[in-house]
Write a protein that binds this DNA or RNA. Structure first.
Lengths: 198, 198
DNA sequence: TCGGAATGGAAGTTTGCAGTTCCAATATAG
DNA sequence: CTATATTGGAACTGCAAACTTCCATTCCGA
């Protein structure tokens, strides 16, 4: 895309800045640029050279986070195997990108304003996770009384909740995938509930 | 608590400001005080007279939102009846306080910093919802392989997700309680899944 | 009706951060 | 080794929003 070949130094610095931005902003959305420069171990001047304005960095950080999440989902091969197995792989994959997910979904204004601009076509149309859910519904594995979009949002929401718990030490990182999957598959009720008889 | 009797005017104005703050900040955490003054139909000067600094209003808004949510939960009588029925009442009650819930839980820094200061003893110890979940687990209704705290967080998380969907028009307000409860009770899988056989 | 309480408009001050400029120091490639 | 690219320290401007002050007006209870 760039007209000139980027030097290795440039790309290394840019990557450091963007990842630092995600890392810092995920904990404090109001963190200042100097704070991010410090986290990236980069001078304030350098940061402004790479990203002349705050919004540009915000967008780059968002795009980067989306790439990380998208890549993890792709690696999980959601279009392969039994839907239940596939979604377990997806959850496990998401667990390894918790920072990126919390960054993107931790601020509703990000998801509302920046994400659409960042991904002109990928987000809603042809989402591999939606495809997986639809496939699972067609095969009678997932509840087809619930919309695929709702199920997807629940997947994000429950995963996000788990990441939060890890963050505050209430849940062991190791248990994230198991807990999320168990909750998704059976809800919060004990197994084999006598189908409502309260 | 106050040494002087508060005039009806004072309390009416204060209430208008606080509810406006919740209403505005739930959609845009970065909204300015003039914006809130306008939403409260109150002069900028008046707002500053009631809340000399931003943090004070933020705290008051948080306390108010917590009171609203706590009141709704209490009205749902979570300690009465079958746990499944009780939690359905709680979800229905939460649905009517979506604004307050989204305000408190929509910003992790709020839940992290302001909430503990706002409720010195109520939040974690002796939470009626936790009590309900524990009771349900003891009666074999809720999954006792999951911690009560996790189940509570899932309850919040799924409800929050539903409110978001309503906000963006993806879910009808009318369907919130049904959808949340169905998801909580059975997860995202079709009823009577042949207990794993992928 | 009268007087204190409450309100709000307008125009301050202060603060903190984004964005800029300049120049010297250092790293990297040819 | 030298030239160019990259970096970053420091001091600047500009701006937006929090917070303040003053005073005229309106509301409300005694």
């Amino acid at each position: 895309m760039s007209s000139k070949q980027v030097s290795s130094a440039r790309s290394r610095t840019e990557r450091a800045i963007v990842t630092a931005a995600v890392r810092v902003w995920v904990r404090d959305r109001t963190a200042t640029l100097p704070q991010i420069a410090e986290a990236a171990e980069v001078g304030r001047t350098t940061l402004h050279r790479y990203f002349p304005e705050r919004d540009g960095l915000l967008r780059a950080a968002t795009e980067h986070a989306l790439e990380v999440v998208g890549g993890a989902i792709a690696e999980a091969e959601p279009d392969r195997g039994h839907p239940l197995e596939a979604i377990r792989r997806v959850v496990a994959a998401l667990a390894s990108t918790s920072e990126a997910i919390m960054f993107v979904f931790g601020d509703q204004s990000l998801a509302r304003d920046v994400v659409p601009a960042a991904e002109p076509d990928l987000p809603t149309p042809h989402d591999p996770v939606i495809d997986l859910i639809r496939r699972g519904q067609a095969e009678g594995v997932f509840d087809d009384q619930l919309s695929a979009e709702w199920i997807q949002q629940v997947l994000w929401g429950v995963s996000y909740t788990a990441f939060e718990q890890v963050e505050q030490g209430t849940l062991a990182k190791f248990d994230v995938a198991t807990t999320v999957i168990r909750t998704l598959e059976h809800g919060i009720t004990a197994r084999a509930t006598p189908e409502r008889q309260p």
